[in-house]
Nucleic acid binder design. Structure first.
Lengths: 339, 339
DNA sequence: CTGAAAGCGCTTACAG
DNA sequence: CTGAAAGCGCTTACAG
């Protein structure tokens, strides 16, 4: 099958290629009647402008890049990324933008991908995930002047546009809720310490615990995988004066923690209360269902995509705050039995 | 920052643009010394050829398309797709191919995406997932003559290349294992009946149960979500002569089933054995860990990507069989208590 | 082995 | 409002 070109449309419409181009792009320069006729013919013969030719003529690539810097096994298991991608995609495809995805091994490889995308003119802009505290990717993108939106922040984003969610408030809400239930020994299994949002959460946790007069607030570090989440939980539950409540930085670790509690013969929630960050269908899948901190992740992705398209269109970089996660109490939290 | 072009490289090397092109693409026509010098200069000034210009000159788009036709909420929770994407990506990026992703609402929208990608020359080929029994997408792709690899089969793939895995043998292995444990009432919670691999599994299940003399082999239909998996399990466990073992078509439904069993006061595996298809880290996350049918999904994706690149390079469409899933017994299967 | 030139399919000033 | 033409940055026959 031969692909139709703009010349085919022009010939059948009896106009120049330029006129077809104007008609297709909604530019002035053709009469309304002619535009209508041209569009009808284009639809009829199944014409879509070549993205390559369009990109080459100085227009945009009509594509946006997303590099994911996580090992394959954690990428698959965390619903977060797919939900984010769904939201990004919904927004992009509504505007006929393509999403180019690449999985990278580390931040330096990611910078290399950005450089190549830029040099190849393959994308008009990129979305940056998993913001770190000293993030080399931010100055690299600024230097390339490649339009970008950081999914995270609001700090350490340089001059880049960003969409962020308050990570401190939900933790405060959760600790106060647990304290109200009567818990005094609350622990937290945190995600990767190199990530900026982990730092924000850790600081918030420390502060709210101090404010509530809890002396035994302990944070242990993990990497979002079930294995590490289980190991951290085992360590916490084996210690003298074990916690009566644990807050996890993602759903996967919380489910692993629930499993460890059951394996150690502890009843949830009577002996141990559990709270998961990243509420997802996984949290409702287990027994008891997990109390969780959640928000609309596809909407977050859509929000970021919309902002990126605005930046590509030339609007100044801005930071906008997205919805704050809220606590949904379910069966995994209750007053401690000893209380 | 101005992006370097082939002309910049040519100027600094003191050769023509044509020579640079030959050097970069490993074509004959330049001496080895000149090629070396040109490549060094290209690296030095950070040159990568414009993908648009390349695509326009009749070369390839250097991109491959993947359309996902599942609602956002199931996409996120099933590790399968992200693992598949990781594998596809690893293979593609090693050859400097980009992956273009699009989430679509239904098969017709998916065909429309293919048609647009083809007309825009945006991709050189596509990967097709979730093969159906009467799949309109297959003839549509054949008509477009867009290189394609079906992830599934080996039937109903038309003339398209495909990578498939035997869906019957693992089910036979599982049923025989359960029968050997002493189970006589085995049920199956199946995935979407419109998918080809569901049909293959259902037929295999019916046959092996008949062969083993099981009269009560029952299949109930679901949609891969935890909600539906839970509902199907509740129905099965409430029936007279409830099964002593249940096989699920994915990990998410199996975990939901485990939760329902616990909620109904049934001990797993003493009162009820559970087997999950799609072994993933999720299966090891719960308590007891789930006996599961698994195989290397990233490798499956890599395999499909490699085949697609071969088809794009002009090799004839072929069907190749991938690894067969194998059973990993864990804590969720045992002889039935009543036995 | 190298250079000059056409052409891929668009967009966009520039004349009419 | 429309047409003819240049140009985007490559690739690839075609001469030398």
């Amino acid at each position: 099958m031969k692909r139709p070109t703009i010349a085919d449309v022009a010939r059948r419409a009896g106009v120049s290629k330029g006129a077809v181009s104007y008609a297709l792009n909604g530019q002035p320069g053709v009469s309304e009647a002619t535009r209508r006729r041209i569009l009808d013919i284009a639809t009829e013969i199944g014409f879509s402008p070549s993205s390559a030719a369009r990109a080459l003529s100085g227009a945009t690539a009509n594509a946006v890049g997303l590099a994911l810097c996580r090992p394959a096994r954690t990428l698959g298991i965390e619903p977060f990324f797919m939900e984010l991608i769904s939201g990004v995609e919904a927004e992009l495809s509504a505007r006929s933008y393509a999403l180019t995805l690449q999985v990278v091994a580390d931040p330096d490889a990611e910078i290399e991908v950005y450089r190549r995308w830029w040099a190849e003119r393959r994308v008009d802009g990129v979305l940056l995930c998993d913001l770190r505290t000293e993030d080399r990717r931010v100055p690299a993108l600024e230097k390339l002047q490649l339009p970008a939106v950081v999914i995270g922040g609001p700090e350490h984003t340089g001059n880049l546009a960003h969409v962020w969610s308050d990570d401190a408030a939900p933790l405060v809400e959760t600790v106060e809720y647990l304290v109200a239930l009567g818990h005094r020994r609350i622990a937290r299994v945190a995600g990767l310490p190199s990530l900026q949002h982990t730092r924000v959460r850790t600081e918030a946790f420390t502060q709210v615990c101090r404010r509530a007069g809890l002396t035994e607030a302990v944070t242990v570090w993990s990497d979002y995988t079930g294995e590490e989440g289980a190991r951290a939980t085992r360590r916490l539950l084996s210690s003298a004066g074990r916690p009566t409540a644990v807050i996890y930085d993602n759903d996967v670790m919380a489910i692993a923690g629930l499993s460890v509690a059951q394996e150690m013969g502890l009843a949830v929630p009577a002996d141990l209360s559990l709270v998961a960050w990243d509420d997802s269908p996984l949290c409702r899948l287990v027994h008891p269902p997990l109390t969780a901190l959640g928000r609309d992740i596809p909407a977050y992705g859509a929000h970021a995509a919309r902002l990126l398209l605005a930046v590509i269109a030339g609007q100044p970089a801005s930071g906008t705050q997205d919805e704050t996660a809220h606590l949904t109490p379910r069966g995994s939290t209750a007053p401690p039995r000893s209380h």
